[in-house]
Amino acid sequence: MIAIYKRELRSYFNSMIGYIFIALVVAIIGIYFMANNLVGGYPRFSHTLGSIVFIFLIAIPILTMKSMAEELRLKTDQMLLTYPVSVTKVVLGKFLAMVTVFAVPMLLAAFCPLIIAFNGTSYLGTDYATILVFFLLGCLFISVGQLVSALTESQIIAAFGTFGLLLLLYLWPQLVSYLPTTAWGTAAALVIILTGIAFLLYSMTRNKLLSLVVEAVGLIAIVVGYLLAGSSFDRLLPRVLSSFSCTKVLDNFAAYNVFDLGGLFFYLSCTALFLYLTVQVVQRRRWN
């Protein structure tokens, strides 16, 4: 794993990608830091970080697009998979290399609260907690990008796919608010989701009976649930789905100065989930 980590890290700095990524993130943080804190005189760096999550949408795809896709294109995955190293270690090594590249601008950002402190009042506790959670959100988005990169051998597709997915995650809270809130609207949306799941199941297993059974059981559950406890369907979807909002945790830290421990675990477990899915994608390709 260390060998892969070292190789990946070196490749980011042998090519322009590492430098471009770092320059971009540093530039945006710098501009917002200057405008908000230095010129604007606002003492909280956490607010600055909270307002520049959009930088991930552009920077993360640049960082992650080649991580898995390039191996497929150059067929170097054949080397990694025939060497005595597990897929998990390959994926982890690559992930940690990207995290290390991302840590460089974050280390630079860690100076910002100190600069504020030298010039007057500062809130070092909230600022550093927010830097940590901003970093973890970046790691989560990196794992999303890595998963998308594992699905294709084209870096361009990986970059655009990651951008699209991150955009979805970024806009999630707003999108969720457009979901139906009435009980029957929720029931209808659940049926649509259920059908989607059944279709996905069919396309993965090619088992008609299984997916039909799933669809039928789900339908019955929804109808019975709606008839017996229709009121609990009120705002069910927005309530459930908004808890998957990735940016909410950062907002808790940055805007409300709340140390959201559960949110930290949410970030870490989502990152682990996406890394696990990446390993599964690579494994699945071997068995198809």
């Binding site: 070292k6 490749s11 080397m79």
Partner: peptide, 21 residues
């Protein structure tokens, strides 16, 4: 198709292979 990392030198590549092995 030889699985080569084209951004490495031959000795870097073989060192990587040795570590991985």
């Amino acid at each position: 198709h030889p699985p080569l990392y084209i951004d490495m030198t031959v000795s870097e590549y073989l060192t990587f292979a040795a570590e991985l092995k």
